[in-house]
Design a protein around this nucleic acid. Structure first.
Lengths: 337, 337
DNA sequence: TTGAAAGCGCTACCAG
DNA sequence: CTGGTAGCGCTTTCAA
């Protein structure tokens, strides 16, 4: 690879001048600029971003940590960050944390090693303390989908409890009385909060949620299938299911229909997330919209601002909290038609 | 951020020693190692990957270029590369090329600037010449989903023509006689090759494909909906559709059913790709499996090998070509039951 | 408008 | 086993 020195030597100028040309410094004569540019082209010169980052003490890399890429929800998250990176002429460094603490910790550490000072982190596993300490060290780190009170000005999150309540209200308004829940087996707050919100609203309306009609499983299509199967096997009656996410909901519908139940005629199914796929499943999935891409964009921009030390003057923390929005499609309907 | 010098000063050793400890060099006394490690911990020292890459003339970054992240097909591709990166203790730098030449060119250039010498590139837009020139400069660059004869030992690709033939054979074997095609409007080889293969096999069997029953649109759910609508509007008869990809196929099914046609009873629909979602759509989608994640893993490993100058001794180019595999589910059935 | 040179943080070579 | 130091490719003063 040709370096700045090669260009300088061949063009008969100093490296300083080449650097100026490479960076579009206005105080270079047109003549020199033309000459140097030509040599750059001939040699196929590409500036070394590592060297540049080293001397400038800042890299043009934006980092994002997500559990996995194949989940469309997280792909959307990454995509939101990528859009901001692109608009800032930055590059996207992506680390996956799987779902265990050690990988997640390592994913973040690797990002830091790469000197990326803007990072959007999705972590459900690491403790509040650990994340808070990390945030203290990296001003440009923002958490997404997580709320930690000590660093609330660094958190872009969604109100899961309220989501559960909205779900309950919807199902109740449809005259259902026997509810089931399919949730995630993962030991994180989201499923718990959603379920609490759901139960809370149910109780308020005078209904209750039977423990036997709560099924936990992996938050993916397969998990939804299994959970629905278990629900069916329980023999208990239910006419509406609130499901942890769209993937599980679609898996559940698949099992339900394979077993001769019609959705929503026999059983209503309500998802969560509103991934693109939910619009195209059959029946089209009623769900709660989780504006993850918008949130990711927000988080990335916030990280950018925070890193510039420009503490936002009048931050309105309310805007950091998102509330899921009911999207009524076809998988939920009035009980008994 | 604490640097190696800070650690050296506080630990009372030279930077050389700190470097050795950081790199697990065996010839450091346990005593020194313990002492230095402690200081590293106290200071929260993190090695600077940029500086390291600069002096070692190699980065621990693996790059991948895809059009976009939100398409599950490309997410799987990226995921395959990511798995290899992880297993090699490397980081994943992801650039999206959208679908235009300039962005794609820039995406690759940025990866090169970041000194990532292992790259898996999905490019449908750039010319054979441009890509060949790029490959000549970067020994660790591998193309995926593209075949260029001049650099065939750097291409991991799928036989689209054969895919089209397999599709035709399947539909013919189901006694269909009136075929439609929904394909991508993009000016790339894949849709053309698939259609050629499809048509070729049709002709061989004595059938023909009417130009009026070929609909091109954007290769996504929405595009599939519109294309199916147009097919319906044409008034021409067809009982089987070969669709460019699963997303379009699901969009098409959506439109078909909204218009009162049952899939597969009235019309059979065959997709392409076999993304996870195809297993969970209603009806479950018959499709051609495109082992993209496996191919991506293969590509990443190949890039790794090539970059190590270790020209694979006995490369079997046949293994670089993948053939789609028919996955029969529910969206295709025998004509007239 | 241009050049010389210091130095970013690190590794690797050479001495000791 | 440890230290001194050159130098990776680049930017950025400071001088000219």
């Amino acid at each position: 690879m040709a370096t700045i020195k090669d260009v300088a030597r061949i063009a008969g100028v100093s490296v300083a001048t080449v650097s100026r040309v490479a960076n579009n410094d206005p105080k270079v004569s047109d003549k020199t600029k033309t000459k140097v540019s030509k040599v750059m082209g001939d040699l196929g010169y590409t500036p070394n971003a590592n060297a540049r980052a080293l001397v400038k003490q800042k890299s043009m890399i934006m980092g994002v940590v997500i559990p996995q890429l194949t989940d469309p929800f997280f792909a959307s998250l990454a995509n939101g960050v990528e859009e901001v990176a692109r608009s800032e002429n930055m590059q996207l460094l992506l680390s996956t944390g799987l779902f265990d603490a050690e990988s997640e910790r390592k994913a973040i550490a690797l990002l830091i090693e790469q000197q990326c000072d803007i990072m959007v982190v999705h972590s459900k596993i690491l403790s509040d303390e650990e994340l808070t300490a990390l945030a203290a060290r990296k001003p440009g780190l923002v958490l997404i989908d997580r709320y930690i009170d000590a660093i609330k000005e660094r958190c872009i999150w969604i109100d899961n409890f309220e989501g559960g309540r909205i779900a309950a209200r919807h199902l109740i308004s449809l005259a259902h009385q026997d509810f089931a829940v399919i949730s995630s087996v993962h030991e994180i707050d989201d499923p718990k909060l959603r379920m609490e919100g759901f139960r809370s609203e149910l109780n308020t309306a005078g209904f209750s949620l039977s423990e036997q009609l709560i099924e936990l499983n992996e938050p993916n299509l397969r998990g939804g299938e299994i959970a629905a199967q278990n629900l069916l096997s329980s023999g208990k009656k239910f006419t509406a299911i609130f499901v942890y996410n769209d993937a599980m909901a679609i898996g559940a519908i698949s099992t339900l229909e394979d077993n001769g139940f019609s959705v929503p005629n026999d059983i209503s199914v309500l998802g969560f997330d509103d991934v693109l796929l939910s619009r195209y499943s059959r029946p089209k999935l009623s769900t709660l919209n989780y504006p993850i891409e918008e949130m990711a964009t927000h988080a990335a921009r916030l990280a950018l601002r925070l890193n510039n030390k420009k503490q936002p003057q009048n931050i309105n923390l309310d805007t950091y909290k998102y509330v899921p929005r009911l999207v009524k499609r076809e998988s939920t309907s009035r009980f008994g038609h």
